[in-house]
Design a protein around this nucleic acid. Structure first.
Lengths: 140, 140
DNA sequence: CACGTTTAGTTGTACAAACAACAGTAATAT
DNA sequence: ATATTACTGTTGTTTGTACAACTAAACGTG
């Protein structure tokens, strides 16, 4: 049967890549005790104390509801703190969160190394920057 | 703050693209009453009557457990039929499933047109084929 | 043949992420 | 100054997907 429609459909190919890289990222982040997305969130908060949830959602490209759940979990584990400011919520790092920062940076580096070895350093960087450009166009 | 690590991390950029294209695909497939993944599954079954679940999982790049759930749902809606053959399960189309085939093809075409308009036809095709190559390397 | 090994599929469970509906606050317009 | 609109965040619910543990069939070797 002709199943070439799978290879040419961006929905399918993008999701395939997403699943492959997510699996790899989870493996590399496993030692931190958190999944990659939480690692990036904490890094953003550590690097921008008082960043609002809206800004976090924009940077991470997730919906506000998803971000609420993320912050809920991190707050429960005492890794970030919320401070309500009118209608917005500012998110601040905690001592514990700041202490974990480095392990996330290390995990990111291992992940980057691992996929760069498989794809080639140049190709990996080119791919990533293409994905940013294309995502922006699709989100319009 | 320097948040360039988000743009250069393939985990992040791949998931961003995945969410953007998934949203678009769901919009275009909404009129069929099914999400895109189910559409592709039905097309595979319609085009390859008796295909096994293993083969479907391989083609769709999902795990066997995920595929079991998909087939469960489609079978409940009478869109495919299971036939146990020893330890494997063959999946066959139903009349109803065959009848829906065309609407999935139409939805796929609309989706393809829509993202091609945004990305450029050439760029979209190039991107999709790059994603296939890169995914294969990551899955090793 | 019998036992262990591999393979295919299923089920329980968990998590990321979305949407829809809602609540509270801020900003704008009349 | 009040009413309306817009914005930010939360909660309930749903879906896609994975993994681990399991069952059952097939295969291979002593």
């Amino acid at each position: 049967m002709d199943d070439s429609f799978l290879q040419t459909c961006l929905f399918f190919t993008a999701n395939r890549l997403s699943r492959a890289i997510t699996k790899m990222a989870e493996e590399e982040f496993a030692s931190t005790g958190f999944t990659p997305m939480y690692g990036y969130l904490i890094r953003l908060v550590n690097g921008t104390p008082g960043i609002t949830q809206k800004e976090l959602a924009d940077k991470l490209c997730v919906t506000p509801s998803t971000l609420t759940r993320f912050v809920d979990k991190l707050e429960a584990k005492n890794l970030v703190e919320r401070k309500v400011q009118g209608k917005t919520v500012e998110v601040y790092p905690t001592e514990k969160g700041l202490g974990l920062g480095d392990s996330f940076v290390q995990a990111s580096k291992r992940l980057h190394q691992r996929y760069s070895d498989l794809l080639g350093k140049e190709a990996a960087e080119e791919l990533s920057s293409q994905l940013v450009i294309m995502s922006a166009k699709l989100e319009q």
